[in-house]
C-alpha cells in the first residue's frame, strides 16, 4: 500500500480520500487545511470591521461580497478537511480553544478604510502567491478547493487595488492614509509566507509529498517581484530601505522581516489575537439556538409527513 502511495506521488498524480496514506501525510494535511480554513473564517473579521462604515453603497456591496467569499472559502476547506476523517464541529472547537492556529496576518487591526484596500492588494496578493501552487497539491480534494478559491481571490485583489487607486487620486490626506496603511501591512504581508527556509522544519517533507511546491523564501521573493511595480504604479513607497533591483538575479533584493515579531504573533501576543478568538467564540455560541432550531425542525419533519400520509 505504501508503495502504491509513493507511486502516485512520484507520478505527480492525486491522492484521493479513501486511498491508503501515511498517517503523517494525513496529519500534515489536516493541520494545514484546518489552519487554512480557520484563516478564511477569522479573515472575515478585520474587513468586517468596516462593513457598516464603508463610504458608499458600492464599496459596501463589494466588501460584503468579499466577506461572503471568505466564508465560502472556509467552508470549501472544511469540506476538504472532512474527507480526511475529521469532523467540522471539532475543528471549530479546536480553533476556539486555541489548539489550532490561523494565519498571523489576521491579528493586525484595520485602523482606516485604506486598510481594506491594502488587505485586498497585499494580503490577498500574498495569499494568491501561496495558493496558486496549491491547486496542484497532491491531495485531490484540497487541490480542487484551491482551484475554486483562486478563481475568486482575483476579484479580492483587484477590488483592493482599485480602491487604493481611487484614494491615491483623491486628497493629500487620502494619499497619506494609503501610505500609512502600506507602512503597517507590508512586513506582516511578507511574514505570511512563513519563517525563512532554514527555520521551516516541515517544509522539506511537505515538498517531498508534493503538498507544497515551492519554499517559503521562493514564494516571498516572487511576491516582492510582483508587488514592487504595482507599488510604483500606485505611487506608494514600500517601507524597506534595502529594496533594490538585483540585475544579476533579475529580481528585487529586500530586507529581512522581524522574525521575532512573527513568533510573538503566532504565540498569541499579536495586537488582536484575543479579540479575534473571542469574536469567533461569541459568534459560535450566539448561533447555537439557530443550529438547535434547525435540528429540531428537521427532526419533526418525518413525523409530520407520517401523520399527513
Amino acid at each position: 500500500m505504501e508503495a502504491q502511495f509513493e507511486a502516485v506521488i512520484a507520478a505527480d498524480a492525486r491522492v484521493e480520500p479513501r486511498d491508503w496514506m501515511p498517517e503523517a501525510y494525513r496529519a500534515t494535511l489536516v493541520r494545514q487545511i484546518a489552519q487554512h480554513a480557520h484563516s478564511e473564517i477569522i479573515g472575515m473579521q478585520p474587513e468586517g470591521n468596516w462593513l457598516t462604515r464603508a463610504p458608499s453603497l458600492r464599496r459596501k456591496a463589494i466588501l460584503l461580497a468579499k466577506a461572503q467569499d471568505e466564508a465560502g472559502h472556509g467552508l470549501y476547506l472544511y469540506a476538504a478537511a472532512e474527507t480526511l476523517g475529521v469532523d467540522r464541529a471539532e475543528l471549530t472547537e479546536k480553533l476556539i480553544d486555541g489548539r489550532q492556529k490561523y494565519s498571523s496576518i489576521f491579528n493586525y487591526p484595520t485602523l482606516t478604510f485604506a486598510d481594506v484596500g491594502v488587505i485586498g492588494w497585499l494580503v490577498d496578493g500574498a495569499a494568491i502567491c501561496n495558493q496558486v501552487p496549491l491547486c496542484r497539491c497532491s491531495y485531490g480534494p484540497y487541490a480542487r478547493a484551491m482551484v475554486r478559491i483562486c478563481k475568486e481571490e482575483s476579484f479580492h485583489q483587484r477590488q483592493g487595488y482599485e480602491l487604493l487607486m481611487t484614494l491615491m487620486a483623491g486628497t493629500d490626506a487620502q494619499r497619506a492614509m494609503v501610505q500609512d496603511a502600506v507602512d503597517r501591512w507590508w512586513w506582516p504581508s511578507l511574514m505570511m509566507f512563513g519563517p525563512p527556509d532554514g527555520a521551516s522544519p516541515n517544509s522539506e517533507r511537505s515538498m517531498a509529498w508534493r503538498i507544497k511546491r515551492h519554499s517559503n523564501d521562493e514564494l516571498r521573493r516572487r511576491f516582492v517581484d510582483m508587488t514592487v511595480p504595482q507599488a510604483e504604479h500606485l505611487g506608494v513607497t514600500l517601507p524597506d530601505p534595502d529594496l533594490a533591483w538585483n540585475e544579476e538575479r533579475g529580481g528585487w533584493d529586500f530586507g529581512e522581516p522581524d522574525w521575532s515579531e512573527l513568533q510573538q504573533v503566532i504565540k498569541g501576543d499579536g495586537p488582536c489575537n484575543a479579540q479575534r478568538i473571542e469574536r469567533r467564540r461569541a459568534a459560535h455560541e450566539d448561533g447555537a439556538w439557530v443550529r438547535e432550531a434547525a435540528s429540531a425542525y428537521a427532526a419533526k419533519q418525518p413525523a409530520r409527513e407520517g401523520s399527513a400520509g
Partner: peptide, 12 residues
C-alpha cells in the same frame, strides 16, 4: 460533483 456541506435537512 463540486463538494460537500452539512445541513439539518434536504431543503436547507
Amino acid at each position: 460533483h463540486v463538494g460537500s456541506l452539512h445541513a439539518a435537512d434536504d431543503k436547507m
